[in-house]
Design a protein around this nucleic acid. Structure first.
Lengths: 402, 402
DNA sequence: CTGAAAGCGCTTACAG
DNA sequence: CTGAAAGCGCTTACAG
């Protein structure tokens, strides 16, 4: 019996396209039906220019008919790359079953999309700091590189980053860009954002501005926001007294507690700059529970512009971190690293988003009117809708005396 | 020169543990150093009981020293499974760069954790309905099974599910459990949740209850909520008039628009049951813009209990879908499918979460008092905090006349 | 308990 | 433009 012509044995491949096919089709099945070698099938399907156009079409048609998909495990093994990026979340403050920080969730969305655009898959994993995460993904060839996301204690984190660098792992990290940072980071210009917010509150006539958020070196992002803020105050001849700063991690609970602590200190204040929106939401809750009005009694602002910031009552003035852009940049940078192209750390601009919680936008009297009107008229509708306060309305500083 | 003893050539492996190692270590490297065969290394590291305890320890130590990790591509290729699940999101209504529904984000969190608990990786992908998603992941052996998540037009979706079933793909889907559903679904008991909410609003004394949310068969989940609601009304001798129902997909924008449409119809109503929290948040915004108070003029309730529901002003009464449990069940069920164990569709109980937006909890007079007090006293703190309204306080029905 | 060997399904020099 | 061959790094019968 003569040896088969093209390196495969006919086996049970005769007959109609799918009859007799056990399990998934392989490139040999396609080759047999197309009357070419398996190499040619591989080339045709991977878009190699070395294939005759007609042959390619025939192969593609057959592949479609057989519902053939290249086996990623085999192709990855052979080509020594995975076509996959791994996203590692760190949730140090909330290792329990609680909800994930919505800001990171937004990042997740944009990273996922960016990966898809670049033809990469995304492996997602939630990590504890104790985990031996630094090695797993790239070493086991599940991913070509890592994206690191999450607040967290800075020092232990840093030493893990060094290990990653030493191992030659490809990674980018979302976080503050610091001088002696191991590896590459993409972050938001926290200092600038904090400064803009401080200046804005001052322009609104606020004079005694509290800051809620941990400002130890463990929390370099909050620290940078605080420093920018303090700089803006100083520029206006104001100070950021220690009595008006309370530590808080980025949760509503911490924000609530921090605001209560602040209130218990009995120091007058007319504004709260919270280091994150979550903290701000908790603080607003606490203020409401103490019978204080936002922004009439206390202006409250946050940082991040998470989706629910718009839906706070009143809508929360905050600093937008452009997660869309961040996700794209993170993925792009990581891909450059993987391809051994030059790549560098980057700071994304922070943008002030002015809503009503800072006292800008809809004036108090308009609010007052609305309230009075609504008291008169229970739910029968048809009134002309009040214009929604535009997100970025210019706002005259309201002078305040304490 | 004698042939090497154990099937590998010494190569550049002499010297200290890592010197001379090009790239990652392989099981052959470990075998060489441990003085055993590569097979034994593989067995030891995969936890086979067929390995001498001492040998195993030696191998494990060396593997640690060399920072060795099993190559997933190779092991997956060989064992024909990936140890990975794929999570496919469908975002039909919002194909743009906008934010993802926070409810699904919560699910993502719980699914990720459930996967980790079971030792699986999670591949995440956002899909358009047009995509040929039904085949890709499992066929290319990137995942052992799929988790399908997302609202969406029901009919086209359904035919894709049939295709998946025909192909023998392992998948579970989050969504309504319907009689002639292809494949396995895990969902929330939307009917029951809607009924509970309807009954609750009636018990609060509300009589003309609007429903915001699309109730065509395209949206079987909203439809089920609506039907449960209507059933509760009927049980109380009330009706759910068509004039008080407005279609809306699950976004704040749609909720805002739907509430405006409702108001423009000039039909009296004293409550809005929104088919989702996002719709409810938008509706509350619209009501506020029309000078209507929640809950004094209109009670508003939602569905999902997304994180920001607690932070609405007033906090939103809603129906909790237990995403923690759902994620776990989704993963567990899929794993059973993959292992060819019996598995079945399941309905998770819905739980009413009572906050202030429905008129229960903190009484109007208390609110009034708080407001008056706050008007008197600008931000100097130290007052006794008002008790936060307990999440599930028993509430006497407040009679209402229109 | 251990080793020698086959083979998972590809990609990619190498040779024409 | 195409084919024959090697080999990616494992797992797993098979034989002792």
């Amino acid at each position: 019996m003569p040896a088969p012509a093209l390196g495969y044995t006919a086996g049970d491949l005769q007959g109609n396209p799918t009859a007799g096919m056990k399990g998934k089709a392989t490139s040999f099945d396609i080759a047999y039906r197309a009357g070419v070698s398996q190499s040619t099938v591989s080339r045709a399907l991977s878009g190699s220019p070395l294939v005759n156009a007609q042959t390619r079409q025939r192969i593609e048609r057959i592949a479609r008919e057989l519902n053939y998909k290249v086996d990623k495990n085999a192709s990855n093994l052979r080509s020594q790359q995975s076509g996959t990026l791994a996203l590692l979340f760190f949730e140090d403050p909330t290792p329990d079953e609680s909800h994930i920080n919505p800001f990171f969730l937004s990042m997740l969305g944009s990273i996922t999309r960016a990966c898809a655009r670049h033809g990469y898959d995304l492996l997602v994993s939630f990590q504890q700091f104790s985990d031996d995460w630094h090695a797993d993904y790239e070493d086991s060839r599940k991913a070509d590189g890592l994206i690191l996301l999450g607040y967290g204690d800075y020092m232990p984190y840093c030493s893990k980053l060094e290990k990653l660098v030493a191992q030659g792992t490809h990674f980018v990290r979302w976080g503050p860009v610091l001088p002696d940072q191991p590896g590459i980071s993409i972050g938001c210009d926290n200092h600038d954002g904090g400064k803009a917010m401080g200046a804005h509150l001052v322009a609104q006539g606020r004079r005694r501005i509290a800051f809620l958020g941990t400002i130890t070196p463990d929390c370099p992002e909050f620290l940078a926001r605080y420093r920018g803020h303090a700089e803006a105050l100083a520029a206006a001849g104001l100070s950021a007294p220690a009595a008006l700063q309370v530590d808080a991690i980025s949760t509503e609970e911490a924000g609530y507690a921090a605001a209560c602590t602040l209130l218990a200190r009995r120091q007058p204040f007319d504004a709260i700059f919270a280091a994150s929106d979550l903290i701000a939401m908790g603080a607003m809750q606490a203020l409401a529970d103490h019978g204080l009005r936002v922004p009439e009694d206390v202006a409250v602002t946050g940082f991040d512009d998470i989706p629910m910031a718009r839906f706070a009552q009143p809508p929360l003035t905050t600093v937008l971190q452009d997660t869309q852009r961040a996700g794209e940049l993170l993925v792009e940078t990581l891909l450059r690293l993987i391809r051994n192209e030059p790549a560098e750390s980057r700071l994304l601009p922070a943008r002030l988003v002015i809503r009503r919680s800072c006292g800008a936008g809809g004036s108090p009297s308009a609010r007052q009117g609305a309230r009075a009107a609504s008291a008169r008229s229970p739910a029968h509708p048809g009134k002309t809708p009040r214009r929604r306060a535009p997100a970025r309305s210019p706002s005259a500083p309201r002078p305040r005396t304490r």
